[in-house]
């Protein structure tokens, strides 16, 4: 059984958490204008504050979305086709249409991006694949996803070890581009060949534990749906209906 953290948001069932994200993604396209999309970013941050992942989410938002949004503004406001010129300098001209377009586009990217980031911060991958398995996904998928997450840090370590080993053999990893590019293959080849070879051993190990046996597997790990999930789901559905009705009526 999964331990309760006594935090309403963290204790929700994975698919309920995903419905919150899905709700934000759908409504961003229903509601007109860019203000709603931009409001979703602080809303996600507020939810993150409640779930105690605020710092992590803010850091990732700045790292992944801020640069992209700046680039979109720069490119669209100068190069989007339009006639309303606000300011111009030689061949560059700032256009109203471009600014409007980038406001709409970035508000959507911001809202969807922060909703997805929030979902992955409050839901562990283990929980996500567990709930997918409950929906009927084969347990092999669970194994693939979870083992990927453990293999990545292992392989990172291995790549650093190999790079150090090659350095002691005289392969240079610093200098101009040609020197650095030359270091790429001597690091990569052993890394890939070692990891690929390890799959054979792993296959034997898993086979010895009846991984491919055609029987129903049981799980030690369990998450249960509670009444809170039902309440949140109904609330989201009602909100969605209200938004759709309000949008159609206007």
């Amino acid at each position: 059984m999964k331990e309760k953290s006594n935090n309403l948001l963290l204790d929700l069932y994975p698919s309920t958490k995903f419905l919150i994200t899905l709700f934000i993604i759908i409504t961003v396209f229903i509601v007109k204008g860019y203000l709603y999309g931009y409001l979703m970013v602080p809303l996600c941050l507020l939810l993150a504050l409640y779930a105690k992942v605020f710092k992590e989410l803010l850091g990732l938002l700045i790292k992944t979305l801020l640069v992209l949004i700046t680039f979109i503004f720069l490119i669209q406001s100068f190069f989007y086709p339009g006639d309303t010129i606000l300011w111009s300098w030689s061949f560059l001209s700032l256009r109203q249409e471009g600014i409007d377009f980038s406001l709409l586009l970035t508000s959507r990217i911001g809202a969807i991006g922060s909703a997805l980031l929030l979902f992955f911060r409050i839901t562990s991958v283990k929980d996500i694949v567990y709930s997918l398995e409950q929906l009927g996904l084969p347990s092999k998928v669970t194994y693939v996803v979870l083992s990927t997450l453990t293999i990545i840090p292992e392989m990172k370590k291995l790549s650093m070890t190999i790079m150090d080993a090659q350095k002691t053999r005289g392969v240079e990893t610093e200098g101009n581009l040609r020197v650095r590019a030359k270091a790429f293959l001597p690091t990569l080849t052993p890394l890939i060949l070692t990891s690929v070879a390890s799959t054979e051993e792993r296959a034997i190990t898993l086979e010895a534990r009846a991984f491919t046996a055609p029987v129903k597997k049981t799980s030690l790990y369990r998450i249960e749906k509670t009444k809170k999930d039902t309440v949140v789901r109904i609330l989201l559905l009602l909100l969605l209906i209200v938004i759709i009705v309000w949008r159609v009526a206007l």
Partner: peptide, 25 residues
């Protein structure tokens, strides 16, 4: 089974290489 076990390795190679490329600039 051996093909399934290759999937995580392939994904990890993708992720690790994109970092290796950054380290070697």
């Amino acid at each position: 089974l051996i093909a399934i076990l290759l999937i995580p390795i392939g994904v990890a190679i993708n992720v690790v290489i994109s970092q290796l490329v950054q380290v070697l600039r």
